[in-house]
Every structure is written in structure tokens, then in C-alpha cells.
Design a protein around this nucleic acid. Structure first.
Length: 899
RNA sequence: GGGCAGUUAGCUCAGCGGAAGAGCACCUCCCUUACAAGGAGGGGGUCACAGGUUCGAACCCUGUACUGCCCACCA
């Protein structure tokens, strides 16, 4: 005999192996069938899979399995992302533990270590996706990596095409610099966080005068690089000072007062210190006024170009000392608490230093405009659609994309400089390696994947490659087509591109999705996908983001080991409603675990009853009411399920299945069918039980692949299937022959009667096992309707005897209920307290009377009668009639109790 | 500072113009031969607040409050 509880572990291990061995997930080109393609958001190779990956990939797997079962040729290939800064940081940390730095190793050795790490970690992540049940084809030739040879070709091709169209350029701009990661970042890689700090008011002495101009700043340390103080041209306080010089404290420099419209007179003192090298706004002001730049903060985040005292000190320390020094000089007017937003690195959370630097950029506006056309004309749609607006808004305000990173791990920028022609433009470090390049000083890049043979200008052959690498998102942006071998015109590219849908979390809508859209249109002239399914973030049960530092991380691998993969998938998927964030707790998996066990026990029950080897083909002949009812409900559930799945309403579809299987199939239908399993009717009943159940398993399969596959394998022969896997089966189609609305109505009445008898039993604490006698009376034809199904009531309400009669007499020693058109009397043994019973019925009567009163009031309302639709009025008329009928019936029972 | 959501039972949410719902949690009774990871029954909500539209509002409109996200160069 099968054990009472389901043990997921051996089942999951078995099927994980068999699926790969039999290559059931293989997606080939099959022009006779529709294709369904999703490219996996490639996980970064930074460590292990987390809950977010579990959700993201479970959702994709649901879609892929559903489409595969629907007969489409599904493609979903595994892959990982090299993950640029994030991954480099992981290795740097590991080196630190060994007491080394990446400089100790040198670029070449460091990269070798990175590739070793990829081999180790990339494999682990794929292994974990397998555990999650993802129906990816893990054949080695199928595994993609954003830095493998094919993808590298794509990156070069993309760079070249953009360069040739002048959409990539090199220039000096204000960029976001992370001194910790030691690289430039794009604007969207900066996260703003509110921080409590101070606003300092500093007095700048006016030259040849005793007066001062007071400026307000949150960053006093940058004052060493001030080149001016700006005021609004119409600011009366300062108008006279415009053009005058100020003595910049702590330096021996003079700076001038300039006028700029952008200055807000109402903020601070209305006078702003202008630091062109370290503030984006100041940079713009300086451009407008032709101010010189003077950087005072280095790439390391230390003070430079300043007096000895501060030289080389970190900005935070310099800030403290400068404030103290100003105070000592009497130039600090005020220090007030101030809360403002501070930019932080999205990879290491350290403060971002805005500074001027020469970098590579993508000119995004022309690309964004094309993308906007597609979203505006409805070609690109979002599920849920509320993401469309923010997506569009971002494209409309898009800034040029800084794509160069000063790290080592990534695609090296395919630009080369002739040593001879580049003049002063090449800067080397102490080891003689090219460290940075200045185009302004003569360096002219030649774009090429390999080292160029000859310089176009001087014929020289000594080339140096640009030391920077590309933003990791640059290669991610090409993923939907690089996956298929672009720029080669592979058959896969032709068949699977554009892909069918993209499934992703909203946090990378700009970083990734928008860039894929722009790249797809630019390089292939076609959107990479037309549907974007956007999901939320898995949080802890209090809605907090999971993070190691908070210690609230739940590891999906632990959860799968403890409760099984199907259970975890269920609890994630059922909660993923409307793309909202999911508050996840271990507790929520238990619901999934219970459902898995419930299903397992259904199969156990059926297997205990069926005769192995026998074929239980669906027999409709002679189906009784409960059969017709469950088949009708199954059929309805199937149609609703398909509709929901096609609309990407996956949690809703799962919820429908859950309700159908647990409430209707288990709690009602199986219970109703049980007595028949003891009769010659057994085979017919089993045919319906097995067919409805196994078809439901097919519907459930995309969500919970392991248990459904296992059950199917155990029972398929009974349903006449020889399929090797459930996935070789087809999803059932709704069948008109199964429709039977009448059964729904009739079963509804019977279920209500059963429930009211159960309620009475419960109220009088009659043990469920104890058999009772009951009498049901009704003065009209309704009784005829239920007469053939008395045995349903007897069985499920546990009655030893059921009398159906027209006579309205209340049997002695009985408890009564009025349900619809029926009076129900449950016969009690021994005495019942007439007072208690009277009380109970009177209370119900009161409630009914109150209802009638409300409705009648409404019926006396002239404007209601005049304005409300006739159907509404009729409905209320009927309610009153029903109520009154019940009231009078209760009245009669009460009268009988009096005697 | 701008924009977008949300506020319904203890929790997570559905309902989006005609008698307040589900799941989980809770309480009571039951180890009934598929399942105690189960079954049956039950309690619990002025639908954030204030106005308005309507015969009728959780639902539509207008404010207010709070919460959450996204975007933004206010020193």
C-alpha cells in the first residue's frame, strides 16, 4: 500500500533525470507547428539562485509547459549572464579573503580566475534551475553564456553597427562614478536613498570688502573645486555683486559671482557654489558660462588638487575637517540638519561620486523614438498593462547611455588606438599598461574585433586596445537574438525570432527590457517580443526586501528540500496576482504542501479502487446527476483555465483549478461516488473519476510538474494512454457534450439541503458518525426534483432514514430548518428543549422579517420603481415572496412547538 | 518636486453600480477504511475619511489622510 503522505524527493529526482534523458524539453524547428519562445532572463553568475529567480523561472516554466501541452513548439534555452561589476565584486571579495587584490594577479590571471568561477558557479545555477523543475533543455550545446564565443560575436557586431551609424561615441561628460567598484555607471545604475545629513551655510568673503556672500551646501568638501558662485539675475540681494570676485576660503583662489536663471531664489541663501567637476547641475552651469573645471576628488574618492592638509584624504574625512576649519575661521554661518537623497551604487551601495570623465556612450534618443512608436501603436504590450506608462515615460526622457566600465570582467571594448597617432591621449599605469584614453588629446579609435593590421593614418602596426569593458547590460540587450546565433542568419533565428513573450521583474524594466526593445528594433528591424509579462519581487512576510544584511533571506533550495518543489512553486505562483510583490514566508509553502498531499491522496484512493490493467475509458452512458454535474464543472473549469492562461492570468488559473479539485471534485464528487464503488456501477464511476482527475492533472502540470507527472505515470494505462511523459499528451479541449446546466441547478439544491442538515448536526453537536433520521417536506413540485437523489442526501448528511413527504407536519422531537422551498426536520433522540428550539427559530424569523421590511420599503419608493430596471424590481418582488413564504412556514412550526 | 498604484475579515487579496466574498489563520465537533498535511460546522468587516452623482455606491466623481513604488540635477 502506498504511504499516506507524499514524499517529493525521490519523485523529483527521478523525473528530473528522466526528462533530461528522454530530452522531452527539446525544442526543434518544426515549421508545421506554431512556435512559442521565451528567452530566459539569464541569472548572474554571482552565487546561488534566490527566491526572485524561483518566481521568475517558475512563471516562465508554466507558460512553456502550457504551450508545449497545447501543441506548440516551445523553445526555452538555459543561459547565464557574466554579470559585470556584480560578479567581479564577488571574486574580489574572495581574493581579499586570500589576502590578495586583483592588481596582485594582473588582468590576465584575474580573468582566468573569473572563467574558473564561471565554470563552477554557472553550472551550479543551471543545476538549481533543473531542481526547480524548469523545462529547459540542458544539453551542453544548448547552454548559453553572455560571454561565450557566439555572444561575443554578437556584441562586436552590435557595437560596430552602432558605431557606423554614429550612435556610439566617446566623449567627456559628467558621469556617475563608484569609487569602490572603481568604474563609471549609467544613470539607472544609481539608486537614490534618503539620508540625514546637514546643510551648511558658508561665508565667502567679497574681494576688497568686509561683506560676504553666504552659500548653502550639502557637500562642503567640494568647495575646493568651486569656480564661481551663481545667483539668480533678478535677485535683489545679490544683483550688485554679479561680476565681482569672491575669495574662496581655504584656497588662495578668487572666483566670480555669476548670474543664472536656474537658481532658485527661495532655496537656502539663494547663492549657489558652482563646482563644475563634481555636480551635474554645476557642470551644466559651467558649460553655459564657459567656466574652467578643477577636479578635486579623484577616482579613488580622495581629495586632490588642494592644499596639503586635505590631500589624499577621503571625502568624508575632508568634509569633517573643512567644516571645522571654516568654523575656526569664523566662516561657517550655520549648520542645520537636512535630509536629502543621496545616490548610491546599485552593486555595492557606496556613495556615488559625480565627476567629469571621458567615456563611451550610446546616443539613445533615436533608438528610443523607434521603440516609442511600437509601444504607442500597441505592438508592444505589458501584462499588467499599468507598466506601459512608466516604460514610455522613461523612453521619452531617456539620457545617453554610458556603456564603458573601468573593470576587467566583461566584453572588452572593440576599439584600438595606434600608439604613434594617439599622441598625449594614452595614459599608462606604473606597470606600463594602458589605463585610460583621452580622445581630446589625440587618441582616435579604430573599431575592430581583432587587432588592426595597419594604422590608416600612419601605417603603424603598434595598437593598443581600449582598456575598458562594456556595461554588462550591453550584452544583455542583445540576448533575445544573440541566443539564436545572431549575427549569423541561423535557421533558429528565422524560426524563433521574434520571441513570444518576455517574463521579468519590474525592477529591470529599464535596465534590461527597454534596451532589448531598442536593440531588437535597431539591429533586426523587429521587436524582440510583443508581450512583456511583468511580475513583482519576493519579499519577506512583512513586505521587506530580502537581504543578507537583514537576515531575512529565505533560500528556495532549503524550501524545496524541506517541502518539495511543487509545494514551493504552488505557493509562489498562487500569490503572484497582478504582478504584485509577494510577501513570502515559510508558512505560505505549507498551503502548497497540503494541496500536493491532497492530490497525491486522490490518486492513492483511485489506485486502491481500480483494477490494474483495466481500461477505464470515459463512459457517459447512464451517467447520473452527480456525474453530469462534475463533468459539466470540469468542462467549465477547463474553458476558464484556457482563457486565463492565454491572458497571462496564471495565478487566477491556478486558483480555479485548486478550487475545482479540492472543493468540488474531492469534497463533493468523490464523497458522492464512494457508495457506487461498492456496486456493479463501480467501473462506470471510476471511468469518470479517473478521466476527470487525470485531465485535471494535465491542467495542473505546468504549475506542479513533478507530482502531476508521477500520478499520470502511475495511472495512465487505466486511461488508455501509453505516453512516455505527460508532456507528450495534449491538453484536453472543452467538449460541448459535457455541458449540462440543469445538473448545476439541481446539484445546487441538493448541496444546500445537505449543508443545512450538517449545520443542524453541528449546532446540536451530533457526532458526524452518528446516523440520524430526517424528514423533508415541501408543498410544491420541488420535492419531485430531489426525490431520485435522496441517497445523495442520506449518504453525505449521514442519515439512516430519509422521508420525503408532502405533508407539512412537524415530527415530534425534531429540529427544524427552512431551506428554500423545503422544510427540513432532523429527528432527535430523547428530549429537546422546546424553549431553545423556539428561540433558535424565532431568531431566524426575526432576520427574515427584517429582510422583508427592507425590501418592502424599497418597493414603496416611487423613484426606485420608476428608475430601476424591471428585472431588478422583479428580483426584489421575488425575494419578498420567498421571505414571506419562509416566515409563514417558520410560523407554523413555532405554533406546533407551542402545543 | 512630479507620476502611478493601493487602503475591503487577524493576514494575503478578489469583487468595481443592484442583498459584503475567497484562501490562510481562529473557535467547536470528529483519528468516518484517500488524505488529521484531513472532514464537517462556525464566529468575525460603519469596504481609510469627508463630500458629491444616482432610485440605489465597496464600486463612479472630487477632495483629505496614510502606505508603497517609479521617475527627477534643487544647492
Amino acid at each position: 500500500m502506498l504511504p499516506k503522505t507524499y514524499d517529493p524527493k525521490p519523485v523529483e529526482e527521478k523525473w528530473t533525470r528522466l526528462w533530461q534523458e528522454n530530452r522531452v524539453f527539446r525544442a526543434g524547428i518544426d515549421k508545421s507547428r506554431k512556435s512559442f519562445t521565451i528567452v530566459i532572463p539569464p541569472p548572474n553568475i554571482t552565487g546561488a539562485l534566490h527566491m526572485g529567480h524561483a518566481l521568475n523561472n517558475a512563471l516562465q516554466d508554466v507558460l512553456i509547459r502550457y504551450r508545449r501541452l497545447s501543441g506548440e513548439s516551445s523553445f526555452w534555452a538555459p543561459g547565464t549572464d557574466h554579470g559585470g561589476i556584480a560578479t567581479q565584486n564577488v571574486l574580489e571579495k574572495m581574493l581579499k579573503a586570500e589576502g590578495k587584490t586583483k592588481e596582485d594577479l594582473g588582468r590576465e590571471q584575474f580573468l582566468k580566475r573569473m572563467w574558473d568561477w564561471y565554470k563552477e558557479c554557472g553550472g551550479t545555477i543551471l543545476q538549481q534551475l533543473k531542481k526547480l523543475g524548469c523545462s529547459l533543455d540542458f544539453s551542453p550545446e544548448n547552454i548559453r553564456f553572455t560571454m561565450d564565443e557566439t555572444r561575443a560575436k554578437a556584441v562586436y557586431q552590435a557595437f560596430k553597427e552602432l558605431w557606423e551609424k554614429e550612435l556610439i561615441y566617446r566623449g567627456e561628460r559628467m558621469i556617475n562614478w563608484c569609487p569602490r567598484c572603481y568604474t563609471a555607471l549609467s544613470d539607472i545604475e544609481v539608486e537614490f536613498e534618503e539620508e540625514r545629513s546637514h546643510l551648511w551655510r558658508i561665508k565667502y568673503p567679497v574681494e576688497n570688502s568686509d561683506s560676504f556672500v553666504t552659500v548653502a551646501t550639502t557637500r562642503p568638501e567640494t568647495m575646493l573645486g568651486d569656480m564661481a558662485v551663481a545667483v539668480h539675475p533678478e535677485d535683489k540681494r545679490y544683483r550688485k555683486l554679479i561680476g565681482k570676485n569672491l575669495k574662496l576660503p581655504l584656497t588662495d583662489r578668487l572666483i566670480s559671482v555669476i548670474a543664472d536663471e536656474e537658481i532658485d531664489m527661495a532655496f537656502g541663501t539663494g547663492a549657489v557654489k558652482v563646482t563644475p567637476s563634481h555636480d551635474p547641475v554645476d557642470f551644466q552651469i559651467s558649460q553655459r558660462h564657459g567656466l574652467a573645471q578643477m577636479p578635486v576628488i579623484s577616482y579613488e574618492g580622495r581629495m586632490m588638487n588642494c592644499r596639503e592638509k586635505y590631500l589624499g584624504k577621503k571625502t568624508a574625512l575632508a568634509r569633517k575637517e573643512i567644516v571645522e576649519d571654516l568654523q575656526a575661521l569664523g566662516l561657517l554661518e550655520k549648520e542645520e540638519p537636512y535630509t536629502h537623497n543621496v545616490g548610491k551604487c546599485y552593486r555595492c551601495s557606496n556613495h556615488i561620486e559625480p565627476l567629469v570623465s571621458e567615456q563611451w556612450f550610446v546616443r539613445t534618443r533615436p533608438l528610443a523614438e523607434k521603440a516609442l512608436e511600437k509601444t504607442k501603436n500597441g505592438e508592444l504590450t505589458f501584462y499588467p498593462e499599468s507598466w506601459q506608462k512608466p516604460f514610455d515615460a522613461w523612453l521619452e526622457k531617456i539620457q545617453d547611455w554610458c556603456i564603458s566600465r573601468q573593470i576587467w570582467w566583461g566584453h572588452r571594448i572593440p576599439a584600438w588606438y595606434c600608439r604613434k597617432c594617439s599622441g598625449e591621449g594614452l595614459h599608462f599605469d606604473e606597470k606600463g599598461e594602458l589605463r585610460s584614453v583621452s580622445v581630446k588629446k589625440g587618441a582616435k579609435p579604430a573599431v575592430s574585433r581583432e587587432k588592426p593590421l595597419k594604422c590608416e593614418h600612419c601605417g603603424g602596426q603598434d595598437f593598443l586596445q581600449d582598456p575598458d569593458v562594456l556595461d554588462t547590460w550591453f550584452s544583455s540587450a542583445l540576448w533575445p537574438f544573440s541566443v539564436f546565433g545572431w549575427p549569423s542568419k541561423t535557421p533558429e533565428l528565422g524560426y524563433f525570432y521574434p520571441t513570444s513573450a518576455l517574463v521579468t521583474g519590474y525592477e529591470i524594466l529599464h535596465l534590461w527590457v527597454a534596451r532589448m526593445v531598442m536593440s531588437g528594433i535597431f539591429h533586426l528591424g523587429e521587436l524582440p517580443f510583443k508581450k512583456v509579462y511583468v511580475h513583482g519581487i519576493v519579499r519577506d512576510k512583512h513586505g521587506q526586501k530580502m537581504s543578507k544584511s537583514k537576515g531575512n533571506v529565505i533560500d528556495p533550495l532549503d524550501m524545496m528540500a524541506k517541502y518539495g518543489t511543487d509545494s514551493m512553486r504552488f505557493s509562489l505562483l498562487i500569490q503572484a496576482v497582478g504582478g504584485k510583490d509577494i510577501p513570502f514566508s515559510e508558512n505560505s509553502i505549507i498551503g502548497g504542501r497540503n494541496f500536493v498531499n491532497k492530490i497525491y491522496n486522490v490518486s492513492r484512493f483511485l489506485q486502491m479502487n481500480l483494477v490494474p490493467g483495466e481500461n477505464y475509458e470515459l463512459e457517459l452512458e447512464g451517467a447520473d446527476l452527480s456525474d453530469r454535474w462534475i463533468l459539466h464543472r470540469y468542462n467549465q473549469t477547463l474553458s476558464e483555465y484556457k482563457k486565463l492562461m492565454d491572458e497571462f492570468l496564471l495565478p487566477e488559473a491556478l486558483d480555479k483549478l485548486y478550487g475545482f479539485l479540492w472543493d468540488e471534485f474531492c469534497d463533493w464528487y468523490i464523497e458522492l461516488a464512494k457508495p457506487d464503488l461498492q456496486t456493479e456501477n463501480k467501473k462506470k464511476k471510476l471511468s469518470i473519476l479517473i478521466n476527470v482527475f487525470l485531465n485535471s492533472m494535465k491542467l495542473l502540470h505546468p504549475f506542479m510538474p513533478f507530482i502531476t507527472e508521477e500520478i499520470f505515470a502511475d495511472m495512465k494505462t487505466s486511461a488508455g494512454s501509453t505516453a512516455k511523459s505527460l508532456m507528450d499528451e495534449k491538453l484536453p479541449r472543452p467538449n460541448k457534450k459535457l455541458e449540462d446546466e440543469t445538473s448545476l441547478r439541481k446539484m445546487g439544491v441538493i448541496m444546500e439541503i445537505i449543508k443545512s442538515i450538517r449545520t443542524i448536526r453541528s449546532q446540536f453537536t451530533i457526532p458526524p458518525r452518528k446516523e440520524m433520521r430526517a424528514v423533508i417536506t415541501s408543498s410544491n413540485g420541488a420535492l419531485e426534483d430531489i426525490k431520485p437523489f435522496g441517497h445523495y442526501i442520506k449518504n453525505l448528511a449521514r442519515l439512516s432514514e430519509l422521508e420525503l413527504s408532502k405533508a407539512g407536519e412537524k415530527p415530534k422531537m425534531s429540529v427544524s430548518a427552512v431551506m428554500g422551498e423545503f422544510n427540513i426536520f432532523v429527528l432527535m433522540e430523547g428530549d429537546i428543549d422546546p424553549e431553545k428550539e423556539k428561540n433558535r427559530l424565532s431568531k431566524e424569523r426575526q432576520a427574515l422579517l427584517a429582510g422583508t421590511k427592507t425590501w418592502e420599503k424599497k418597493m414603496q419608493d416611487g423613484s426606485f420603481l420608476k428608475n430601476a430596471p424591471e428585472a431588478e424590481v422583479e428580483k426584489i418582488r421575488q425575494r419578498i415572496a420567498e421571505n414571506n413564504d419562509k416566515i409563514s412556514r417558520i410560523g407554523l412550526i413555532l405554533k406546533e412547538l407551542e402545543r
